[in-house]
Amino acid sequence: MAVVSEAQAPKSIGASDRRFRLEGLGLTLVLVVLILFFTWVNPRFGTLANLANVLTQTSTYVIVAMGMTFVIAKAGIDLSVGSMLALSTCVFFGLIEAGWPWPIALPLMFLLAMALGAFNGLIIAFLAIPALIATLGTMVAFRGIALLHSAGKLYYGLPPAIVWLGQGKVLGVPVPIIVAALFVAFSWWLFNKTTFGVHVRAVGGNREAARLAGINVARVEVLVYTLMGFAVALGGLLWIARIDGTQATLGTAMEIHVIAATIIGGTSLFGGRGTIYGTLLGAILLSMLNNALVIAGVEFFWQLVAIGCIVIAAVTINNIRENRIGWISRIRHRRAPAK
């Protein structure tokens, strides 16, 4: 994969972290304020142990949301991530139960998830099916295949080496956090520093212009969904290692959480623009709220109300901070002293 500098990339074909240097700063402030607030409400929230908990809980969502950032920045969507996760992890468990050694079963799980992702990309690119419809179809179909495969069975009992990925620690840091951090770094590099990243944003920003500029749009399409499959396999691996089990119904409604994290982070639903850092913050914000409201002792149904309100407030503050709201931007512009 060729590496190009941002300066070499055409300016009109999408935006990345580097172009929006301060993007996510508003969300960072929101996150910091919320951490301080919830620590004040219950000091146990701000302990290192609990913050590690939050990051461990969000690791799978962070990883899958990284893949979703590429998909959405390319003006796509993937509703099948939860079903893909269930199918690939059930097959993996099935192979383990059938006596396959995990070093063979594990790559097969990744290959399967990437193949499922590539399948999404192929039908979107070559059958001209809108991504929403295509992945809605595969969401149902993959779930069905997972149920057929496992017949509703709950798989349990992974090899210790795999369980370590979800429950182990390295120098006191939970392994899922390390894996997620590495994948975030890789995603940042891929999104911001490579031709592939530029092409993804270019296709998302203006598909026809990208095609006329010589970008192989179909190839980008398939590669992005294949990457999504890889992210699902990696995130799913951490998830099943954490709970040491899986079943065909795992990951139901996961797509909502992942898409929300990506959009909260500032990736445009219309494509062409996205930030890895913003997605990371969006995913952490969602998991943090679930954790913080429990520790704050908030009644469960109020938790749902509070999460919805805080998410809307966070995105609004971020949008104001980054001048994305037209009428506020115009007022600011009018009030600004003429130079």
Binding site: N42, R44, F45, T47, A49, N50, N53, T56, Q57, T60, W239, R242, I243, G245, Q247, T249, L250, T252, A253, S287, N290, N291, V294, I295, G297, E299, F300
Partner: peptide
């Protein structure tokens, strides 16, 4: 006593319930 009532999305949300267990442990 004081009781906090929690629930997960549905009976297949094992990871969600594990996260809630971890949170109540931290709550003490």
């Amino acid at each position: 006593y004081e009781v906090q009532q929690l629930a997960v999305q549905d009976a297949t949300d094992h990871a969600g319930q594990l996260a809630q267990v971890e949170s109540v442990i931290q709550r003490g």
